[in-house]
């Protein structure tokens, strides 16, 4: 299966192995870490509109 992109940090994530995922508006998103998932869930629209922001800090 192909890799999916983490909408927060832009990393490639293997959907089969991913532990962190969420469903938003009928779409499934995969994350590299809990931190990215939490950020996404706080403000999903921001990341969907602006694309991945890369690593913060």
């Amino acid at each position: 299966m192909s890799f999916k992109v983490d909408p927060v940090c832009g990393m490639q994530v293997d959907p089969v192995k991913a532990t962190y995922k969420t469903i938003y508006r009928g779409e499934i998103y995969y994350f590299c870490s809990k931190r990215c998932k939490n950020l996404f869930e706080k403000d999903p629209e921001h990341y969907l509109k602006h694309g991945p922001v890369g690593m913060l800090q």
Binding site: C9, C32, S33, C36, M55
Partner: peptide, 9 residues
């Protein structure tokens, strides 16, 4: 380790 965030912490 599963992402660069881990390395930072």
């Amino acid at each position: 380790l599963d992402c660069p965030t881990c390395v930072y912490s």
